[in-house]
Design a protein around this nucleic acid. Sequence first.
DNA 1: GATGAATGAGTATTCATTCAT
DNA 2: GATGAATGAATACTCATTCAT
Lengths: 225, 225, 225, 225
Amino acid sequence: MTDREEISTVRVRPLRRDAERNRQRILAAAAEVFTEHGLEVSLDEVARRAGVGVGTIYRRFADKDELVETLFTDRIDEIAAMARRAGELPDPWTGLVTFLEQWVCLLAGDVGLRQLLMFATYGRDRISYARHSFAPLVGELVDRAKASGQARADLAPTDIPFIVLMLSTAAEYAHYSRPEIWRRYLNLMIDGMCASRPGTRALGVPALVAEEMESTMRQHSSRRR
Amino acid sequence: MTDREEISTVRVRPLRRDAERNRQRILAAAAEVFTEHGLEVSLDEVARRAGVGVGTIYRRFADKDELVETLFTDRIDEIAAMARRAGELPDPWTGLVTFLEQWVCLLAGDVGLRQLLMFATYGRDRISYARHSFAPLVGELVDRAKASGQARADLAPTDIPFIVLMLSTAAEYAHYSRPEIWRRYLNLMIDGMCASRPGTRALGVPALVAEEMESTMRQHSSRRR
Amino acid sequence: MTDREEISTVRVRPLRRDAERNRQRILAAAAEVFTEHGLEVSLDEVARRAGVGVGTIYRRFADKDELVETLFTDRIDEIAAMARRAGELPDPWTGLVTFLEQWVCLLAGDVGLRQLLMFATYGRDRISYARHSFAPLVGELVDRAKASGQARADLAPTDIPFIVLMLSTAAEYAHYSRPEIWRRYLNLMIDGMCASRPGTRALGVPALVAEEMESTMRQHSSRRR
Amino acid sequence: MTDREEISTVRVRPLRRDAERNRQRILAAAAEVFTEHGLEVSLDEVARRAGVGVGTIYRRFADKDELVETLFTDRIDEIAAMARRAGELPDPWTGLVTFLEQWVCLLAGDVGLRQLLMFATYGRDRISYARHSFAPLVGELVDRAKASGQARADLAPTDIPFIVLMLSTAAEYAHYSRPEIWRRYLNLMIDGMCASRPGTRALGVPALVAEEMESTMRQHSSRRR
DNA sequence: GATGAATGAGTATTCATTCAT
DNA sequence: GATGAATGAATACTCATTCAT
């Protein structure tokens, strides 16, 4: 087993202490600039901020995509954690709404994470994998809210990421003028999501099923760069 | 008055036949790639697709911005026209909803047009002017729908472009898998927008006033993604 | 004898009236912009100002060089005329000084003409020919001034164009701040040029002879563009 | 303190051996072409001659201006050094004349350096600073020569750069035919500059004061030839 | 292991010149 | 004869990625 294989598949030995420190520095610097300025920031800039040479980045990460992937896998895992915690709230509707809010909150102002979710150009398999991880959790939140009669019956699990995407777009758009504006539209959405009241419109188009959502995310790969 | 004369303010005579053909080829090629892949596509690529030299593009258009401008001014004017027609519908609510639907429909799948509306980076005066032109029209549609008691009282004119932005984001996202999915969320939104029914939530954050919307659009100028 | 030959060698028939008018317009426009902004101005710009198509310029002039050549041949002829008139002044020294002053005056502020004299890049044979035409006249002015005992004995005819070049350089340099400054250095030069007084230094390096001056002018051809 | 450290203000460690070698190659290639052909030579051409990729130039120098700056700062500093040394010569007149000669000698045949002094277009702060640095030194040389009664009373400090400009123009002009011809005109000038003798002409136009000289240099910024 | 030097294709834009209309 | 449309090589500068030190 060569050193390369360790890197690209599963590492068996832990990194040397200094190597690990550099890896963390890189991740921290990348997190900072990608969050603030988006994924177009050059790796030279990331290296500069991390206080390492750009070669060091390439030693730890095969390419820019892998760095992005690694970086955001954690954040996507964090989304799953939020979903889990929301699922433990006693009231199903509160759980769903809380999760929605927290997710958008995470994306609002995280330019890089939004780009990653919108444009699968960056990041690859592991992102896809991480995205999988919370899909069932979201499904559960939605199902519970529907079962309790609080969410409208035609709400689907895949609606949630779409709604988050939409709200975070509004957030980014108003980032410098009214960063909280997305809450206005979250409330609007929630009014639309809650159980049928007289006059509620049919949603018309069926939601995507999980597999479609998956492939939709992938199809953005051909864009950009 | 021909279409050509409208576009170039100083030109008095129509272009020569071959020049006009090339101009149309350029516009067609640009429309295609900007619509499909966004405004980052290079002019070399546009020229290649149009089957002309890049210099030919620069003969007809001062720079990339002007090409973009020329290409999209019509589409933005079309939005104003849609708003006007919607305002003439007998039912105010139908007018508002119809306009929303048409606007999103125009943006769905037009990557370039969305970028142009989101990022003032591209395009210049005429685009900016065109953007202005429909703001009051939208205001009227909203006001009428509220006056008729059909739209919720706290809906604001600037909510409309935000909603369109959000829906078109969903549309773009699902462009290759379910291009019509935005209609689902349009219906959801409409349910949220209609007049208060028992249990309606306050929107919490106030909407942007027109001037804020204006400056918000401008603040994206430095981005370019 | 083809039409081409007429153009490139000696035209036998006069131009049609309208063609001649266009030719004059082109020359006038070119004179204006080359004088004001130098020879880098594009032919499109010249054509625009002349109110003709750029193709018309190429119909009358083989290329940019020929236009420049034609344009400045006249001005160089004008220098010869000035030399002739100066030669008719009763006092030889006054004649020489007057000529110097007029020549510099012509060049000061004529950016194009200076470029042409400094950088033989532009313009070709006919310029060279025109330059020839006044060399003997200048020689005579210098000789007379020396013969009268007013100019220093080691002053040479080829010193004059060098002095003019130098003074016009000063003129161009101070064009926007003190356009007349060259007169200051003209006076300084004249003090240096006048007949030996006690303490006059030998000039050390011999002046160029006429043929050297000729080839010097040509050697600038390899520069620029 | 190495030469390298002087040049790049932030760099603490010397460049790697290979990098330094390339840097020197770039500087050598640039020096050669800028000196011979002027500052319009493209960086692609410089890179080609240096045997490196154009990116390598941009790794060492932020842009073309910085390369030019780096290249010519030393030469401009050398002028100040020459002025200083000339000021230490016992005879004031000899000091002034020596300085004049050395300065022109430096510029003669260095097309790039002349452009840099004539057109503030190229180079930036450090060049501008360097230009400043020798103005007072020149002033002193002139003042001493006047005080000693050797230079004419109406000679001004700003006359010196003008004279240098003029002489170096002559030098450049005769570069390939008689590169030393400028010495002839230097001697002529010196005869004009020395203290009034019977019949000396008034200079007529007042010299520029230091501030005017300054702004004159700046006004060439928009040219670029 | 770490560094940062080197690469070169890619971007928007200009202009002398040719040639179809 | 006149027009102006078309061309494309050239310019300064960027950045993901590779590889010598």
